[in-house]
């Protein structure tokens, strides 16, 4: 009994960390531009597949493949803003939702043409079998996932709290006009947000590919779960996204273990609906701040 519980906790935290990273991707763009980028899940997929390309086809060492994949995804994120979103900054929320959905369809279609429909895998970051703790198995890759997720959250929090650039990015979100007046290059800050968010999504994609493989269709569902985590934690809240991601992962894992594995995906969404209905600004969102936002 105890062993099973531990196993559910481990797999819940592992997948929760991935949801958290996807949620953070949504949050970065949302913080700076108040846009929800529905193509976020596709960056996860692209990250995984590009890593497969660099490691499998070009035979680069794994760490280089990781960096290259994240860099390429960052460039795609930049291009997405430079050539598409940037032209539609003044559009209505609905138009922006449609535009990002269209981009996600394009990215998914290109991935299908580029990699075909088969799933791909990567070798684990460190070799060796699972570590047994009180009868429960922990894969070394799960530790990598949790570690990298923690690293991303800590460095982003520091970036936004302490660094000039981070502060400048947040200023753009609060009031772009005022930000421009005090000399912040708003345009570049928006670019930066898209690059960062695509790169973090891609990193999440690379680190789960050894565990769960990756194929062109995977993005949408991961995007949806990450979106759920972002909303649950409160849009724009990095710490909230981390906690919400873990809550989602654990809830799914426990539901699959103790209730019904078929309704696993529903649990996360029921949780999301309850939070939206009872505390719409999210678990960690600020009600006053949420009211100030445009949407």
């Amino acid at each position: 009994m105890g062993t099973d519980f531990l196993q559910y906790v481990i797999s819940g935290i592992t997948i929760g960390a991935i949801y958290a990273m996807v949620a953070i991707g949504y949050n970065i763009i949302y913080s700076v531009t108040e846009i929800i980028n529905f193509a976020q899940g596709e960056f996860v997929m692209l990250g995984g597949l590009f890593a497969v390309f660099f490691a499998g086809t070009l035979h680069l060492p794994l760490y280089l493949a990781f960096i290259c994949a994240v860099a390429v995804a960052g460039c795609i994120g930049l291009a997405m803003d430079r050539f598409i979103i940037g032209r539609a900054r003044e559009s209505s929320v609905l138009s922006l939702i449609i535009i990002t959905i269209a981009v996600s369809i394009l990215l998914k279609g290109s991935a299908m043409l580029g990699w075909g429909k088969d799933p791909y895998s990567l070798p684990a970051f460190s070799s060796g079998g699972p570590i047994m703790v009180a009868g429960a198995a922990i894969q070394p890759q799960a530790l990598w996932i949790i570690g990298i997720c923690a690293l991303v959250v800590i460095s982003l929090t520091l970036f936004f709290r302490k660094s000039v650039y981070g502060q400048a990015m947040l200023a753009c979100a609060n009031n772009p006009q005022a930000a421009r007046l005090v000399g912040i290059p708003v345009r570049y800050m928006v670019f930066l947000s898209f690059i960062l968010s695509a790169a973090i999504g891609a990193a999440a994609g690379v680190i789960i590919t050894p565990v769960s493989m990756m194929e062109y269709e995977r993005g949408a569902l991961l995007g949806l779960k990450g979106f759920g985590a972002a909303a649950l934690g409160g849009l724009g809240q990095f710490f909230g996204a981390l906690v919400a991601g873990l809550i989602l992962g654990l809830a799914e894992s426990f539901c699959a273990g103790y209730l019904s594995s078929g309704y696993k995906d529903a649990v996360a969404l029921v949780l999301l609906l309850m939070v939206l209905f009872l505390k719409p600004e999210g678990l960690f969102g600020n009600r006053e701040a949420a009211r100030l936002k445009k949407f």
């Binding site: 009994m1 099973d4 196993q7 559910y8 481990i10 797999s11 819940g12 592992t14 997948i15 991935i18 198995a137 789960i208 565990v211 769960s212 269709e217 995977r218 569902l221 991961l222 799914e252 894992s253 426990f254 699959a256 273990g257 019904s260 594995s261 078929g262 696993k264 995906d265």
Partner: peptide, 20 residues
């Protein structure tokens, strides 16, 4: 008797339940 979605990324929970 366990089920999962076609795009699930982890089946350890289902297998753990089966094992028990």
């Amino acid at each position: 008797d366990e089920r999962y979605g076609p795009q699930d990324t982890d089946l350890s929970a289902q297998l753990t339940k089966i094992r028990s």
